[in-house]
Amino acid sequence: MTQCPGATPYPISPAVQEAYGPTDLSSMSLFGGGFINFGYWQDIDLGRPLTEDDRISSQQAMYRHVLAALAPVEGPRVLEVGSGLGVGCAVALEEYGFAHVTGMDIHPQQLKRAEQTNADLLARRPEQLRFAHGAAESMPFAEGEFDCLYSVEAAQHFRDLDAFAQEAARVLRPGGRAVIASFFVPDADLAGPERLAELLDTYSTGLDVAHTIPQLTGSLERAGLTGVRATAIGASVWPGWDRWLARMWEPGTWPRNFLRAYREGTLDYFTVTAQRPMP
């Protein structure tokens, strides 16, 4: 685990500290497989009983969807912001041919878990994979250090989208591409945050922040990134996620309200792409 000298510390919110601390979301059977995301279920048959293999396949598919969106930019060095257990970094390294992958996370315990989870890969390819301690709003890297940057289901935890966007633009080389996938309020309707807090405990406790898509795309544009585009992929996320939740949660319980929020138009899942322009 590395930390660049001079990097500015950034506080972890209490809710994030608790969720990814000793109890650790990834230890729950809900997130079996080590990928902490809701899954991309497009190619999975939801009309039959779901298995653990289906769940893991959906999580891997989310990473593949995001990593494929990095094209057409090619380059050897890629950064994952909010890398968790680092299993997505392994997919990026082993399936997409990057010469070097850095996984960055704000939570020290997650970084220790990432190093343990990927011990074999780190031993086999020590010059190609590393894990670094840093926040999305204060990244411990040099300007232009990366060819590509991606983040999977972490942006809902970011406290300052403007700071994240500025840092993303800074650490990307000219021509470098960023892809962010997570769930957001689709528009700037001020009723959205209040409604999400009513429906979902993760918003009422402050673990998730009700960022809107206009806030994120605006932050990226103000940071100087171009070609900013948000694509809704909720139809490939929410029905499958709800079918998986149905194994453990009854209708009317708060985790099942993700699908309800989507159907109400209060919440959706997006892939957002942007690029640092050439000089």
Rank of each mutant, 00 (worst) to 15 (best):
E153H: 08
L216I: 11
A154P: 01
A165G: 08
E153D: 11
T202N: 09
A235H: 14
R159C: 08
T212Y: 05
R222H: 13
A223R: 10
P214S: 12
V152G: 07
E137I: 03
V228Q: 10
L190D: 14
P193Q: 05
A163H: 03
Q215S: 10
R229I: 09
M139H: 00
D201W: 03
P193T: 07
F146D: 06
I180P: 03
A188F: 01
E137P: 03
E194R: 09
E137A: 05
T226E: 15
I213P: 00
L190R: 15
I180Q: 05
R173N: 09
H211D: 00
A142V: 08
D201Y: 03
L199H: 01
R159N: 08
G192D: 07
H211V: 06
T212V: 06
V185H: 11
F184H: 09
T202E: 13
D208G: 00
L196S: 05
E145G: 04
A230D: 10
E137Y: 01
E143G: 09
L207G: 02
P174Q: 02
R195Q: 13
E143V: 13
V171H: 01
T226A: 15
A191F: 03
L172A: 04
R159L: 14
A155I: 12
Q156V: 13
F184Q: 02
Q166Y: 09
A154D: 08
D187P: 05
A223I: 13
A223D: 10
A223C: 13
A178G: 15
A168F: 02
P174A: 05
R229G: 12
T205W: 09
V209S: 10
H157P: 02
F146V: 11
F141Q: 02
T226V: 15
A155T: 14
A142Y: 02
F158K: 04
A235Q: 14
E198R: 09
H157C: 14
A235T: 14
A169M: 07
G218I: 10
T202M: 12
S219R: 09
P193C: 06
T212K: 02
D208R: 06
A136H: 01
L196F: 00
L172H: 01
T226M: 13
L199N: 01
E145Q: 14
L161S: 05
L200P: 00
E198W: 01
E137C: 05
L199Q: 05
D147G: 07
A163T: 07
A178H: 02
A210G: 08
I233V: 15
E137N: 06
L220R: 00
S204I: 00
R173K: 15
G176V: 09
M139Y: 00
